[in-house]
């Protein structure tokens, strides 16, 4: 079986029929275990591409294939849906305020594995422990958790259906700097332990440098440059990439948690 998990070919994304494309000419391949960064300023189309990757926005032209199959028309409970999951930017809005951390993760286990409540609860505890949450904390609702803990619950929820790709849309931008490092290290750790592929969407070049092997730079809905992350950041060829790098206060780039 091919290790190609996600394949985007000449994709164009629009939010409404007839509206201007939010992203166009997108080509991207994500293979098992690799980490890809998508960088760009606000409005560059990187979140749009992220939404396309997880199937919440269908391309108006071109194709987005997950394990060779298009998102469009895929059944709600198609096993291929498990392959790609998302970690959201805002840990405050991404969790149901009425469900505890444990219930949030257990629900995914119940839905996808058909597990009974007690089995799902135990499995949820294991997954939450894997992201560093255990004890009384997991019985709290989101309002009782810190931003970093919430983001960990979001990651645990994504992990609960056994994905092979995590698409993380600015997963640390709403967090304190110290917490950012913890979450990024957790993602690195998960990548190593589970062999997860990661697509990291971020405006923060230091974060992309720290976490990814390959990066795409987006401007006005188009990919203007892509390649090996370190090479791209050290020897940018496009003017926009140079501007992005030049605008970082306090170089060097390397993220130092």
């Amino acid at each position: 079986m091919s290790d190609l998990l996600l394949e985007v070919t000449d994709a164009e994304f629009r939010y409404a029929k007839g509206s201007a494309p939010a992203a166009t000419g997108i080509n991207l391949e994500v293979r098992a275990g690799e980490a890809v960064g998508i960088v760009g300023e606000s409005g560059s189309g990187k979140t749009t591409v992220g939404r396309g990757l997880v199937g919440s926005l269908h391309p108006s032209a071109g194709a987005v294939l997950v394990q060779g199959r298009p998102w469009k028309g895929m059944r709600r409970r198609d096993p291929v849906r498990r392959v790609v999951q998302m970690v959201f930017q805002d840990p405050y809005a991404s969790l149901n305020p009425m469900l505890s951390a444990q219930a949030t993760v257990a629900e995914v286990v119940r839905v996808w594995d058909g597990a009974k409540a007690d089995v799902a609860t135990v499995r949820a505890e294991e997954i939450l422990a894997e992201v560093g949450l255990s004890g009384e904390v997991i019985r709290r609702r989101p309002a009782g958790l810190s931003g970093g803990q919430r983001q960990r619950v979001g990651i645990a929820r994504a992990l609960a259906c056994g994905p092979q790709v995590l698409v993380a849309d600015e997963p640390t931008s709403a967090l304190d700097v110290s917490v950012q490092a913890n979450v990024l290290n957790l993602m690195l750790d998960l990548r190593a332990r589970r062999g997860l592929a990661i697509v990291l969407i971020s405006h923060d070049l230091a974060v992309v440098d720290y976490l990814t092997d390959r990066a795409l730079v987006m401007l006005n809905g188009k990919v203007v440059e892509q390649g090996d992350t370190r090479t791209l950041l050290q020897h940018p060829s496009h003017e926009y990439t140079k501007t992005l790098i030049g605008s970082i206060p306090g170089k060097p780039l390397a993220f130092s948690p």
Binding site: R76, R81, A93, N96, E107, W112
Partner: peptide, 13 residues
Amino acid sequence: RDFITAATLLGYS
């Protein structure tokens, strides 16, 4: 809100 988007992506009915 993102938690409803997450529920949709997770294939909930």
